[in-house]
């Protein structure tokens, strides 16, 4: 029972959304946009659940003095600090409960929340991302070894495209006569990207769309219900 009603709701809501795509007449066209707006608000509330889980996991580590508990404390402190800053003085042009905090903004140049964003989250996020430069080099070094026909295809195309995307790659083949201009590196790169690569991407997109349509259908008709969990 506790699971039947939610399944019924999913079924009805899903059916309304789908039929309203094809029925341009009211009330269908309106129900759909209403549901879309609701979605935003409901998912907005859910973030609280996650934060509570984060606090729970870390505070239990601190409380039990588990291994590396000091770092969990750092996590809790940063969470609490940024939330307090945000609540008190707001962010950007949004007022917090203490207003805009002009005095403190004058002192540090921007709102405390924004200060933490610019000097904490920004460098952390971009540096984490930049690790990819190193990883892509080590992955290429390790994996691009001449082996089977298929893996050679992967390697050769990668090498052509890596060359074709540099500034001087084009210079390597610029001497080619006009009749062979399709072998000119930037042209060859574009050719690979536009035709064979697009074809494979298309095949992946189209066949995966069937997987998505099928899974969606199974969810709507209530066959796939793992996300709802056990029936207790």
């Amino acid at each position: 029972m506790k699971r039947t009603i939610p399944l019924l709701i999913t079924f009805i809501v899903g059916l309304i959304v789908i039929s309203s795509e094809f029925i341009p007449h009211r009330p269908f066209s309106m129900i759909n946009s209403t549901l879309e707006n609701w979605y935003l608000s409901i998912s907005g509330f859910a973030i609280v659940l996650g934060l509570l889980s984060l606090v729970q996991v870390n505070s239990s580590k601190v409380y039990h003095k588990a291994e590396n508990w000091q770092y969990s404390l750092a996590s809790l402190v940063s969470l609490v600090v940024i939330v307090i800053f945000g609540v008190l003085w707001g962010m950007e042009d949004q007022r917090g409960i203490l207003g805009n905090g002009e005095a403190i903004s004058a002192f540090i140049g921007k709102k405390p929340f924004d200060y933490l964003f610019d000097n904490g989250i920004t460098p952390l996020s971009s540096t984490m991302f930049s690790l990819l430069a190193f990883f892509i080099a080590s992955a290429a070094y390790r994996a691009f070894i001449i082996r089977s026909f298929e893996s050679n295809l992967l390697m050769i195309t990668a090498v052509i495209v890596i060359l074709g995307r540099t500034s001087f790659g084009p210079m390597l083949t610029s001497w080619l006569p006009k009749s062979l201009s399709f072998l000119h590196l930037p042209n060859l790169t574009d050719f690979i990207l536009t035709y064979p690569s697009s074809a494979a991407q298309r095949a992946i997109l189209m066949s995966a769309s069937l997987g998505i349509i099928g899974s969606s259908l199974r969810i709507i008709i209530g066959l796939e219900r793992s996300y709802l969990g056990s029936d207790e």
Binding site: A203, I204, L205, S207, A208, L210, G211, I212, I213, G214, S215, L217, R218, L223, E224
Partner: peptide, 29 residues
């Protein structure tokens, strides 16, 4: 790769409804 992700749970669980669904996707292909 791609669709294999959706096929995986059908293959693993051997659940008739999932395998049936996968057959339906194949019809689509």
């Amino acid at each position: 790769i791609g669709e294999e992700l959706f096929a995986a749970s059908a293959y693993l669980s051997n659940d008739p409804q999932q395998i049936g669904s996968l057959k339906g996707h194949d019809f689509g292909k």
